[in-house]
Design a protein around this nucleic acid. Structure first.
Lengths: 134, 134
DNA sequence: ATGTATAGTGATAATCGTTGTCAAATAGAG
DNA sequence: CTCTATTTGACAACGATTATCACTATACAT
């Protein structure tokens, strides 16, 4: 189990840098952002980096109803939490659910399940988008 | 808003019938099930029917991490609830989270969000699968 | 600093789930 | 039964993601 640590490359740095501006975006959107910033970077590289970062816990990844995966930088060392995302503008707030983790584990145990994982996604329309239209 | 009601066809009936045996499965899996049952039905039809049923609330649809959509028959008139699914065998239990709905609404309100929707998915490994392997 | 093994990159092809297309089949009204 | 709008189904098209593979650049030893 000698999982090699990733090398430090210009591309990785550029990606993390772009991620720094926040927000949930798809891999392809981040790629566009990087290109606009003048970075010469391949789409495949963005996918790979984002995946690696998600795996190492440095970014949050959520799957939308349409099957797209959205990524967002996750502050290092943060405790597990969930997101409240605006369906209109994509803004996202962090929220945490005090008793949820414990509840999930206990309910799962009652059903004989182990190795529990959970996904909690809240979406809505933020105040600004709500007052603007639709 | 004259949403035409769907016609009653053999295919729809066969699909609902197959759904009747329970379990979360992808559209393609349901299609396989139907073919094994001897039904001559097209894949596109299964997709369409499943989508329509999901929209009308007759089936639950969840999107997996890999972007696949899984469908399961949802008892009519049931109150909103969530699922605990086995990652190994696909079995699913219904669970409900007493205070979650209220909590979600209040947290969202605190952030100024409206028209809240939420997704809660619990996955684990059921007792049987846990003792058998992996 | 220089060489070298190796991991990273990126253009492109391949994959996979899903949706669109359109001629043929069929449910349901009259 | 007849007619017409829906539905069907084989297949093409699509979009997001992943695999391929020759090429490049990093990290480390010399």
């Amino acid at each position: 189990m000698t999982d090699a640590k990733p090398r430090q490359t210009k591309q990785r740095a550029a990606i993390v840098d772009a991620l720094g501006r926040g927000g949930f975006r798809s891999a392809q959107d981040w790629h566009d952002v990087l290109r606009h910033d003048g970075a010469a970077i391949g789409l495949a590289t963005v996918y790979r980096a984002l995946q690696a970062l998600a795996e190492s816990g440095d970014v949050d990844a959520v799957v939308t109803d349409s099957g797209e995966t959205l990524y967002r930088l996750c502050e290092a060392g943060e405790v597990h939490h969930h997101h409240l995302r605006c369906r209109a503008c994509g803004a996202a707030e962090d929220v945490d659910i005090p008793t949820f983790e414990a509840w999930a584990t206990s309910v799962a145990a009652q059903h004989g399940y182990s190795r529990i994982e959970h996904t909690v996604e809240l979406t809505g329309v933020c105040h600004q988008c709500a007052t603007e239209g639709a």
